[in-house]
Design a protein around this nucleic acid. Structure first.
Lengths: 144, 144
DNA sequence: CCACGTGGTTACTGTTAGTGACCACATAAC
DNA sequence: GTTATGTGGTCACTAACAGTAACCACGTGG
């Protein structure tokens, strides 16, 4: 990409090489896989897709049906999201070769196992999100 | 175990609004607070900050120390992240008025409670991330 | 005086995610 | 033939994000 050398240390500042190319995924710290995970399901539609597929698990859901169950998503984003999940082996894609080619998606075992920690998160979110939102508004108001 | 398409509906107030507040949270679906949560800790440094603060909990950590424990973060990003967390009432900011003004951060109870579901996520991530990464590479190679 | 460290902020720049609109292609229904 | 459906792909655009660098205010040490 760009800038390989990386202008290190203007003033003897220690930095572990420059990001070099990838902004988000640079990962200087392999000991923190949480970040990677959050990077992946931090997308706008990822968690929703996992949820919808998780609800249907172990059944399959077709593209159009998925789209129907995720109001507001565009084809492009849905396709992109699913592709990403497929890449990560979290969902399985089955193409019915007949015409028009129907495509079925379902969670893999790996993907299904993800639903548990996500459920924990959702649980927490449902319990505390209102308060957080409130706090944010109050903070906005009181900021001086 | 929550299943079905959710639709827990609102908990008293729904936050359509945000014409200026948060672009990401356009939020057509208030029944999915998980998205909101992920929006917040989906930031590049948020989860790391929570982790570092959580490790010190209930102790406090100063700005510079925090920065030291998060290699690669810039002052700007750290300040921004902390401000966001503070806004959400997840961290508490205490300014020692003496000169030079020291600023101490610590998790609130709310923030501390977040560490549990995050730990679940981290757990999962540590267990499965390698496989996911592998799968991704294989997929890249075999893209068909 | 100057430099230095603390705890930020602002301005500027580059990268990315997200969106909508239109295209492809094949079949079945009208 | 025209249209609709189903599963995408591609393009151009915008808004949000991450990062770099420079600056500020303060007081201390030299």
């Amino acid at each position: 990409m760009n800038s390989e050398d990386g202008t290190v240390t203007e003033r003897g500042h220690l930095t572990v090489t420059s990001p070099t190319g990838r902004g988000r995924g640079d990962l200087f710290d392999p000991a923190c896989p949480t970040r990677q995970l959050l990077d992946r399901l931090g997308g706008k539609w990822t968690s929703m897709a996992v949820k919808v597929l998780g609800d249907a698990h172990p059944g399959e859901v077709r593209f159009a049906e998925l789209k129907r169950r995720m109001p507001g998503v565009s084809q492009k984003m849905l396709a992109q999201t699913l592709r990403s999940l497929e890449r990560d082996s979290l969902v399985d894609r089955r193409v019915e070769a007949a015409t028009p080619p129907r495509v079925h998606y379902r969670l893999t075992d790996l993907g299904a196992s993800l639903t548990e920690p996500i459920a924990a998160l959702r649980n927490w979110a449902e319990e505390h999100m209102a308060r957080i939102d409130e706090a944010g508004l109050a903070w906005d108001r009181a900021r001086s």
